[in-house]
Design a protein around this nucleic acid. Structure first.
Lengths: 162, 162
DNA sequence: AATGAAAAGACCATAGG
DNA sequence: CCTATGGTCTTTTCATT
């Protein structure tokens, strides 16, 4: 009866964490490889993975693509300041920013600038156009601050020690 | 012979873009499902996907996990200013920041603050500890500015119109 | 929860159009 | 780029523990 599964937090035992780590490393790993790696039978492993996906612990499994290869070699962070912080304005702007073509992520932060928008564009001109057309054109936006990204890297992630 | 493949940029035709879009949506889609979706024979589709991965256009396929579910419900952006902008210092700090446990991404930007570090932590105390231990402790760091993240969303991405 | 085993399905390499 | 064929590996299902 092999199951030393330690629960270190809300419903996730060490086997689940091993599965998560593996799927972060390679989201296309086959179930059999995964089962071998975490030491489960294939059927059990498949069951666990399904449970993790259905419960939303695995939010999605998705390809990351080379931005230069799809014609968007320039990246920037555009910080956006709002005049009004009413819920309605925040929500509306959030939607609008997330919908910008080329927006990779939009973050709503506590601070002087309310949103950080990470964008990828084809050229500096396109960056200007994007900001003018989709951001500063909004009546509630008081200010933007744009920083060119020299290099972006992934961090070591979240499955090391707490 | 059915092949309307329009090249809109460097080596990528519209079929490739359809494949990329599908794999961004669901990186674990089977080759047969993908082939059906983009209207290719399975053999051809598999060939395309392999080419896209080998050429690095598909950088990786990876699971995104719910940060709260793994015990890190607090996110923040920590902006970091450096005293010296020598190549050596930049590189060293970049490595160090990317290695912080809980670091999701590290971005080197042109601006007053040189780095933006996106982190996920278990609690505000852990955030403080992380900053003190891994960031301000570095001799070249002159200043940090930290913003709590209220909400982070994915943008619409890069495969819409240029 | 976890397992093994069998049926169903997906994949790969190959050859030919 | 498509079809078609094997042979192999993978996933799923289910009765059992």
């Amino acid at each position: 009866m092999p199951s030393p599964s330690k629960k270190s937090q809300a419903g996730l035992d060490s086997t689940d964490r091993a599965i998560l780590a593996a799927l972060i490393e390679d989201g296309r790993m086959t179930n059999s490889a995964l089962a071998a790696r975490v030491g489960l039978a294939e059927s059990t492993c498949a069951y666990r993975v399904r449970a993790l996906r259905e419960s939303g612990v695995v939010a999605d499994i998705s390809a990351r693509i080379d931005l230069a290869a799809v014609g968007r070699p320039i990246q920037a962070v555009v910080q956006v300041q709002l005049a009004s912080h009413s819920r309605t304005h925040i929500d509306a702007l959030f939607d609008r920013l997330a919908g910008i073509p080329g927006a990779l992520s939009v973050v709503h932060v506590a601070g002087d600038n309310d949103f950080h928008v990470h964008v990828a564009v084809a050229s500096p001109e396109r960056l200007r156009d994007l900001i003018l057309e989709h951001i500063t054109s909004h009546p509630a936006v008081t200010k933007t601050e744009t920083q060119l990204i020299f290099e972006a890297r992934r961090g070591s992630g979240v499955l090391g020690p707490l």
